[in-house]
Design a protein around this nucleic acid. Sequence first.
DNA 1: CCCCGCTTGTAAGCATTGATTACATTATTG
DNA 2: CAATAATGTAATCAATGCTTACAAGCGGGG
Lengths: 257, 257
Amino acid sequence: MRPLPRETTLHLEVRDLSSSKTQTMRARRPAPSSTEAKRRYHHGDLRAALIAEALSIAATEGIEKVSVREVARRAGVSPGAPFRHFADKTALMTAVAEEAMDRFRAEIDAALAKADADDPIAGFRAVGRAFLSWAMRNPTHFAIISSRQAIDFPGSQRLVNQNTAIQELVDHLLQKALSAGRLRSGDTRLVQLAGRALVYGLARMFTDGHFESWHVPATEVETRMEAVLDLVVESLAKPPSDATTNPNPRPRSRRRP
Amino acid sequence: MRPLPRETTLHLEVRDLSSSKTQTMRARRPAPSSTEAKRRYHHGDLRAALIAEALSIAATEGIEKVSVREVARRAGVSPGAPFRHFADKTALMTAVAEEAMDRFRAEIDAALAKADADDPIAGFRAVGRAFLSWAMRNPTHFAIISSRQAIDFPGSQRLVNQNTAIQELVDHLLQKALSAGRLRSGDTRLVQLAGRALVYGLARMFTDGHFESWHVPATEVETRMEAVLDLVVESLAKPPSDATTNPNPRPRSRRRP
DNA sequence: CCCCGCTTGTAAGCATTGATTACATTATTG
DNA sequence: CAATAATGTAATCAATGCTTACAAGCGGGG
């Protein structure tokens, strides 16, 4: 119904789309200078332009308002043209999702690279925070990837691969945590699912509009989300055994000094 | 894209729709006997029939396949007829959502009534389990209520009221838990959000198709979900102080005897 | 009782959409 | 440079949400 919250940062520069399933690598002419851009029979890089326009509409008007005709209109092209590049609307949206997923993956990696490599719990939390942060800054991207109504997720090798890669990354983290005796539960898959469901739920509640009744800016919502994440991560984890044997000491309370 | 997982139990008996916003209470003729039902200019109780048909389509074909024309067709009525009862498609879906929400609320209440009234943590867990159970048995209902794209949630007093009532119910539970010293965190709102986001995330992951790659029956998925819920609830809670002072004992491990 | 009016249904039509087909134009490359 | 594949256009189709003008049934006041 209501459009999604605005994308706070719009990344419309669509470069490096070379490796695509349905499109073989092909040399491209330089983009037409904006003044001379008028009415070229061939667009130049219509595929990329369509993805960008689709994302733009989704971000500003809401996902359900994306129509291939409107996308074509904005790209200055006939209503049938997009079907030269995408078998159907789903294929177009899937392409948008693939790009979004790549960026999401990149942010996860970056966050993990900055985290303390010796503290797997901190890494776990960092991934969760990156998830939340990315979803809040790119609600449309997140909505497209997660709600798989508009895309063909299992049909996209790229989406499936990135997804499983992220999960394995987290599971590896949790295995290390378990070995270090930092987990209350011995079932890392269970802990993994708990964390995933938590951040997924928070992010989805946001894009689904469940926080609108709070009437607070998104930044404040995110702060609250991070507090929830911290609480759950702390609850699931055991504090590091302080060199000296100190069985099950109290977890540090970070909110009540 | 893919239709939602089938509704395992379909409740199509739509009675007691008396209190509606857009429709004043009105005496109804008895429903036509099924054999003699043929071609009556006036339907009898079209409004209820439309809601039932809309839900039926959503459950079997997927939410996005619901069209008011198809709904009208199945109700044996002209394409314009539904607009006599619902201002637009959104109003129709909102009516479906209202009914779904009422049933959801009823199940929550029932589950809580069966739970140990003296153990607020058990009550908290029971509400979570009821949420999961209901969402798994009625994925379409859940999807319609939670993903608020097809409905006007804030515009429906009934939906808003039920929603806040459920939240207050849980918050009351957590207040009792806090008073009894059963919570690790002192911020009940935070705990409440953690629990809500967790079960919401699990249920949404299910309806969004995130468990399809598991290739296991829904019952097994639900078992796993319950294990996650138990883990998190246990982690968030403190065990009851066993009469004798016993500061911070290990939580019972339910998986490794 | 019966006519008048309100409700509820129908019929027809509008604009928009996803998708297909036949055709036109450009790019590539042998 | 010409053949061929790639990429765009134009026209068209069926389906949809929704509106408007009209018809059928029901019910209450004379």
